[in-house]
């Protein structure tokens, strides 16, 4: 079982976490000059909590297995599909130019649907409406590949999501989710990623739970995966029923999580344990 490593260790996590708050602070090195780019004020990306071996994989694009997916995204970008006979490139030209900065602003309010959409969903809207092609399934190789490719065009640019105007009520829902206890362990996101950031939960060093590196290549998954997959994992770890990937609940939560990291550089495609 590749995916159940943490799950089994989390029974009684609440009590255990309370006990370990006094321990040594994070072993990350936010003062190391190599980390500078990943630290913005009090915000730190998951990179600064990662072990040196994991960081080394991300540091060199050649070593980073995410690129199997990202490169695939680049290929699909100019492949015509659907009855309109168009590719992404037919309308958007070079992704390096047209998609620069775009990924850093998602999730975003999308008026025709009257709600937020995230980058995966925005890409699928172009698939179905502009290309007349079938939508890609959430977590499919193609959707991950394209999301990674588009988001990477914002690499090193600051996360910059809007939470005002029509996005405000959805932001509030996401925020409420973040602070709501759930599951058998009765924990909220904030108990781990705010209150215990920098503490160990068994072998795991808790980070701020930032989303700036997604989609990410996770060693535990042995593949590239979405933020919603990670959220579902964090829900399951506390013995809570996860929401479906792409659900409104997770998209609203995604906006809150992204906003917490507004100003951090986009790190996609990151590598995590």
């Amino acid at each position: 079982m590749k995916r159940a490593v943490l799950t089994a260790t989390l029974i009684g996590a609440a009590a255990w976490l309370a006990a370990c708050t006094d321990e040594q602070p994070a072993s990350g090195h936010p003062t190391d000059p190599k980390m500078a780019k990943y630290v913005v004020g009090k915000l730190r990306t998951g990179y600064t909590y990662a072990e040196p071996e994991t960081r080394a994989i991300q540091d060199d694009d050649f070593n980073n297995p995410s690129f199997f997916w990202v490169d695939r995204g680049k290929e699909i970008w100019s492949k015509a599909e659907g009855t309109a006979g168009k590719s992404c490139a037919s309308c958007h030209g070079e992704a390096e130019k047209s998609m620069k900065g775009v990924g850093a602003t998602y999730p975003k309010y999308f008026a025709p649907k009257g709600k937020l959409v995230n980058l995966e969903q925005r890409i699928n809207i172009c698939r179905t409406e502009q290309m007349k092609a079938p939508e890609w399934k959430y977590e499919s190789t193609e959707l991950l590949a394209m999301t990674g490719y588009v988001k990477m065009q914002s690499r090193d640019l600051p996360v910059n999501v809007a939470i005002d105007g029509p996005a405000a009520p959805f932001f509030e829902k996401g925020k409420a989710f973040y602070y709501e206890r759930r599951g058998l362990n009765d924990l909220a996101c904030k108990h781990c990623h705010v209150d215990n950031e920098g503490n160990y939960i068994r072998a795991e060093l808790l980070s701020q739970g930032q989303s700036n590196g997604f989609p990410t290549y996770r060693l535990k998954w042995q593949k590239f995966g979405s933020l919603h997959r990670r959220m579902a994992g964090c829900n399951e770890e506390i013995r809570a029923e996860p929401f479906p990937m792409g659900s409104d609940e997770y998209v609203n939560l995604e906006l809150y999580v992204a906003w917490r990291g507004n100003g951090l550089p986009v790190e996609t495609p990151s590598v995590r344990k």
Binding site: M1, K2, F62, N63, P65, F68, Q222, K223
Partner: peptide, 13 residues
């Protein structure tokens, strides 16, 4: 340096 894309299914799952 080399890297290959493969799921490397161990046979033990």
């Amino acid at each position: 340096k080399t890297q290959v894309q493969h799921e490397m299914e161990s046979g033990q799952r």
